[in-house]
Amino acid sequence: MRKSNLMRPLKGIVPPMITPLLDRDTLDVEGLEKLIEHILGGGVHGLFILGTTGEAPSLSYDLRYELIKRTSKQVNGRVPLLVGVTDTSFSESIKLARFSAEQGADAAVLAPPYYFSQGQPELIEYIGHVTKELPLPLFLYNMPGCTKVHMDPETVMILSEYPRIIGLKDSSCDMMYFHKIRAMLKQNPEFAVLLGPEELLAESVLLGADGGVNGGANMFPSLYVALYNAAVKKDIDTVVELHKKVVQISMTIYSTGRYGSSVLKGIKCALGLMGVCNDFISEPFHRFRDPEREIIRKFLSEIKIDV
């Protein structure tokens, strides 16, 4: 097994990679290879597979394992590889994590199980049991919109003291939550705090976040890397200009459809139109049809990314 290059804390842009598909249970292998090189070519600092943007809960286990194997082999240690192991089954989460470690992944990412709601003491106990079985360092994943469970700041504080838990990916869209987390963790500088909502990337990094796990970096990785770098340097003029691009993406590509699935559909549609990979989406969703595709095509022609 190769030596991990995972730094503590993990900093920078760690795109939550989409999962290129040909149909319900077939990877778009050629598209996957092109997508990985497209993302890494943008100078990102890591890669996260089998998250929300990767449609993990909708994928068969066979497909998840194939994705882990192919991605790990291609990335080959060029950046840290994080693998989502969230599942409703404790045992399946551990199996995914063990396989990921065998294939060379650097860390696992775990959200609360997403069917039964847990109280905070139950969540702490559950994650404590998981860490005893894990062969990899662990990032917590706060995604209350999908899991129905919010990781309270106090819960994160307790779990941050577990040696195997090294960071948090927060997708709550709650900046008050972020400020509380940062204040409570000020004595633990090796614990990474990464934000998911890209509209908050600039603000959060300026205020102490370690980076972003931003879906738009599937399409335009260099944009998000440049915005992160400008925020770290506190180059406000550059931050303002690049942040406008991120907001433009949010208000166009992510806002074309009528439902919450529009973000994922928009990213996959854009990547398809860019010639990177197939835009098939696993059920219960479907890819954009011709009217929406033409809208996305128009938006892509108007978005000028020159970083």
Rank of each mutant, 00 (worst) to 15 (best):
L35Y: 11
L195N: 05
S89G: 02
D170M: 00
L194M: 14
P113A: 02
S160C: 07
V225K: 07
L10H: 12
L32W: 07
L300I: 02
R289W: 12
M7K: 14
V130G: 03
P57Y: 01
L22W: 03
Y114P: 13
Y259H: 14
G119F: 11
T26H: 12
K3I: 15
Y228I: 02
S282H: 08
S60G: 13
G272C: 04
A192I: 00
G215Y: 06
T19L: 05
A105S: 13
A226T: 05
K3Q: 13
V29W: 02
K3H: 13
I94G: 12
K132W: 08
Q187I: 06
S72W: 15
P9Y: 14
G272D: 03
P121C: 08
Y61F: 09
E294H: 07
P121D: 07
L200N: 11
I39E: 01
I165V: 11
L123W: 04
G43S: 05
I158F: 07
T19V: 13
P197H: 13
C173S: 14
I13R: 04
I296Q: 05
L206A: 11
R293D: 11
D174R: 10
A111R: 02
F299G: 06
S282M: 08
S160E: 00
R297C: 09
M151W: 09
L32I: 00
Q74V: 09
K234L: 07
N188R: 15
M143L: 14
K3T: 15
K34H: 09
Q120T: 01
M1C: 15
K3M: 07
S160Q: 01
R258Y: 10
N278E: 07
A111Q: 03
Y126G: 03
E292H: 15
M251V: 10
H286V: 13
P291F: 02
K132I: 03
R8N: 09
P113K: 02
S301E: 15
L96M: 13
K268W: 09
V239L: 10
R164K: 14
P113T: 06
S262T: 15
V263I: 00
A217C: 10
M219L: 15
G128N: 09
L6Y: 11
K186E: 14
V14H: 09
A202P: 01
P197F: 07
A97R: 00
R287I: 07
T88R: 12
H38L: 04
C277W: 04
F299D: 15
I49Q: 02
L300G: 01
G260N: 03
G272T: 02
F48P: 00
H150F: 15
L32E: 00
L159R: 02
F288A: 10
I18D: 05
S117I: 10
L82T: 01
A226I: 05
S204A: 14
V130E: 06
S60R: 11
M251C: 08
R289T: 14
V109T: 02
F178Q: 03
E55C: 03
S261M: 11
E92M: 13
F299N: 12
I303E: 00
P113Y: 06
L27M: 08
G208R: 00
E283I: 08
G119I: 12
I296Y: 03
N218E: 14
K132R: 10
F139S: 04
Y228G: 00
I165R: 10
E199A: 08
L10S: 11
S89N: 01
G12A: 01
S91G: 10
S171Y: 03
Q248N: 11
Y141S: 01
